[in-house]
């Protein structure tokens, strides 16, 4: 079970959190301008990387804030956590 360093609360048990899928997928500002394919790209296409992955997490049983996490899915090492809107601190 992960020990997750919530950017707002500090280290907490994984059971307090909810995973929210891939990070840095921005909702298009003008969806109506998009073709079906472009919209489908936003709507459905997600990466599933073995290795370093950027993820959204929510401290659902804590401060309820969403934040981002960089995690290596091959060994579950959490490389970084950072707030929404911030640039990832690692590549």
């Amino acid at each position: 079970m992960f020990l997750i360093n919530c950017p707002f609360c500090g280290e907490r048990e994984q059971s307090e959190f909810k995973a929210g899928g891939e990070a840095h997928i921005v909702r298009p500002k003008q969806p109506t301008e998009l073709s079906d394919d472009e919209w489908a790209e936003y709507l459905f296409m997600r990466k599933n990387i073995k290795g370093v992955q950027f993820e959204r997490w929510n401290h659902i049983h804590g401060c309820r804030k969403w934040f981002n996490m960089v995690r290596d899915t091959s060994n579950d090492q959490i490389k970084a956590v950072y707030k929404m809107g911030e640039k990832p601190p690692v590549k």
């Binding site: 909810k18 929210g20 921005v26 909702r27 959204r56 929510n58 659902i60 309820r64 804030k65 969403w66 929404m84 809107g85």
Partner: peptide, 13 residues
């Protein structure tokens, strides 16, 4: 509630 919070925090802060 979770969904509304998600949009408020991430898409429409």
């Amino acid at each position: 509630l979770g969904k509304l919070e998600d949009y408020l925090q991430t898409e429409w802060p």
